[in-house]
Design a binder for these strands. Structure first.
Lengths: 168, 168
DNA sequence: GAAAATTAGTTTAGGCTTAAAGTAATTTGA
DNA sequence: TCAAATTACTTTAAGCCTAAACTAATTTTC
């Protein structure tokens, strides 16, 4: 008796995978983590070297750049995926550098709104330009279609992870 | 005169991309970072909750697990992609927990070799088993071929980044 | 073979990060 | 209405992480 090609493939897959084996996923996760670390470490190094700024500060400024009217600390902490207490500290340091300003929320006195100062906007523009070129340089080994494909698959992964966590 | 399909595509690509524009790469990087953060934050949370252990300690133990004869601190710091000083501190804490042991290198008196203790091996085995199932759960939205494709593309990216950094 | 350079690891100062506990303001609901 | 619950943010303690300076041992170079 002959097997269908697809049935043969399924059989091979079964053989390769013992029950409860998820080595392929684990390998993917380790590779994702390593790739991320490799890029992130270099970005941190260059931000420090060229602009004497940390990645968290750059990230916070990048968030504010997209919202000219400013943002509450809570919104910042959500977008940056860090705790409120973390944002409090970052905001303190950026205020001291005078690249952001903070004002009271009009109707909610618990809340504060921070936004880039003119100095902050200028400084961020310079940094963002170089930052983009660093990324381009590091990603130069990928074709445009690689970039699109990878972006799409990571989107799928991210959505899947969110769903898994929401369901758990 | 008719254009070849590929020439037409090239023309479109040119139009979409102003010179020096690398928005697609930037978007990919932000997505990679966000996806990584999403997964990593959850892994950290679960490791703490279930085993009262941090990700760096888990990572260090995972490295040692693959080398039953142990490893020098320098080798650990290379594999973990962190500084020597960082490893010194982690090793101190793991020694205090008695999950690793440290001995002098036979011929090089500057060097020390650390390895998992029996307690460490047992503890790590329990953690690794659950860890693998968490990854499987979070990656369940991807098919086997997605996993393979993503692993391959990340490999290409990682190789490209290393090449870009070596050349720079 | 000894000075110079390198290597392995540690220490230190400072920033990032979290969880947990705390304060003050706002919203809910009985 | 007003007490309870929630929300926005801050503070604290402890761990992670890095760069830079340091110690001690080894290797290189002359």
């Amino acid at each position: 008796m002959e097997l269908e090609p697809s049935a043969a493939l399924d059989a091979e897959t079964k053989i390769a995978e013992a029950p409860g084996d998820h080595k392929a996923e684990l390998r993917l996760w380790l590779r994702l983590l390593a790739t991320n670390t490799l890029i992130e470490t270099e970005i941190r190094r260059r931000l420090r070297e060229r602009f004497d700024v940390t990645l968290p500060r750059f990230d916070l400024m990048a968030q504010l750049e997209r919202k000219p009217h400013g943002m509450t600390l809570g919104e910042l902490s959500q977008r940056m995926m860090v705790t409120n207490g973390n944002v409090t500290g970052l905001v303190d340091r950026l205020l001291a550098e005078e690249v952001i300003s903070r004002r009271q929320h009009k109707s909610d006195r618990r809340s504060h709104i921070v936004s880039l100062t003119e100095k902050g906007r200028r400084q961020f523009a310079r940094m963002a330009k170089e930052h983009e070129s660093w990324i381009a340089e590091m990603f130069a080994g990928l074709s445009q279609s690689d970039v699109a494909a990878l972006t799409g698959m990571l989107g799928k992964l991210k959505t899947g992870v969110r769903a898994a966590l929401a369901g758990a």
